[in-house]
Amino acid sequence: MDRQTRSLLAHADHPFAAPLEDSSVDRLLARAVVRGDARMLDLGCGEGAWLIRALQRHPDGKAVGVDISAEALERARHRAREAGVAERLALHRCEAASFEAPHPFDLVLSVGATHAFGGLLPTLEAARRQLAPGGTVLVGDAYWEREPSPWARETLGEYEDLAGTVEKVTAEGWTPVYAHISTRHELDDYEWNWTGSLSRWALDNRDHPDSAEALQAAARHRDEWLRGYRASFGFVCMALRRTTG
């Protein structure tokens, strides 16, 4: 089973592919989208959950989503049709880091997708190239809430603590105008959904050739989370505007 398919199955019950409740998503969008006719871009949009929610909140807004997964984009089209926003949502299958739009955007999102760019700062640089003057970037990334184990640091990455993450961002000419730190409930709920949704699919499809592999992947992820990084992992979403340049 490839990573994209596994991710879609794991997020079946949590289409916002990040540790955030619906109310947190709505609060972030309320701070990040200040124009009713905003043009919005999601770099690494997955199933389009952020953009669909934003378009429902702003009937005059338009949005573009970019992702490498054909199946995720097809699900985004289906969800957009169900939500009545399909005519205002354009979807492109390509690498998020290489996407170049014909016009700038009032809001550029990349939540939980910084790996596609090689880290937080390269993500912000890619977003800056697509951002209209006075626009906002909404970025979500991990940080270390406590000192991680050597295994967690080696496996998940060389993140900073929260203060170091904000300092790194501000040093590159960005100012946070709002942020949300995922709560323990949001973090745990996300992981239980990820492992539970994948496990349920495997148990409901025992005859599928990928069933055993999916069940093993869910069990391995659950063990790594509970024993490896639950105590130290944090997630922050920041609404950022340019301070300089």
Rank of each mutant, 00 (worst) to 15 (best):
R27A: 15
T155F: 12
L28A: 05
R220K: 11
I52D: 06
R35E: 02
M1C: 14
A239L: 03
H103W: 13
L187H: 09
V236A: 13
A90K: 12
G84S: 09
H185F: 15
W225P: 03
D141R: 07
A70R: 15
G196W: 11
R6M: 15
P122H: 12
R81H: 10
P209Q: 14
V34S: 10
S69M: 06
R81T: 12
E158R: 15
G46W: 04
A72Y: 10
A219F: 11
S7H: 14
Q216E: 15
G112M: 00
R184N: 04
A152F: 04
G164L: 08
V169A: 02
A54Y: 05
L55I: 11
A127L: 04
A96M: 11
G157S: 10
T165N: 00
G228R: 12
L107Q: 00
P150Y: 06
D37L: 08
I181N: 09
V66D: 04
V177N: 00
Q216R: 15
E154G: 14
V236R: 07
G65H: 09
W151P: 09
W201P: 02
H103R: 10
P19K: 04
S7K: 13
A63T: 03
A231M: 00
L226P: 01
A32D: 03
P133G: 07
L121N: 06
T170I: 05
A97Y: 09
A217C: 08
C237H: 10
V33T: 03
L9E: 03
V111I: 14
R241G: 00
W192H: 14
T175G: 00
D26Q: 12
E95R: 15
D189W: 12
G173Q: 09
H58Y: 05
E47K: 11
L89F: 13
P15G: 06
R81A: 13
L109F: 03
C94G: 07
L109Q: 03
S110D: 02
D60F: 05
R184H: 07
R129G: 02
P15D: 07
A10S: 14
T195W: 15
L107Y: 00
L138A: 03
H78Y: 04
Y178Q: 00
E191T: 02
G65Q: 09
R206S: 07
W201A: 04
A212H: 14
A231T: 07
G228E: 08
F105I: 02
K168Q: 14
F117I: 05
H221N: 07
P133F: 08
R35F: 05
T183D: 05
V85W: 05
L120G: 03
V85K: 06
G118E: 07
V177M: 01
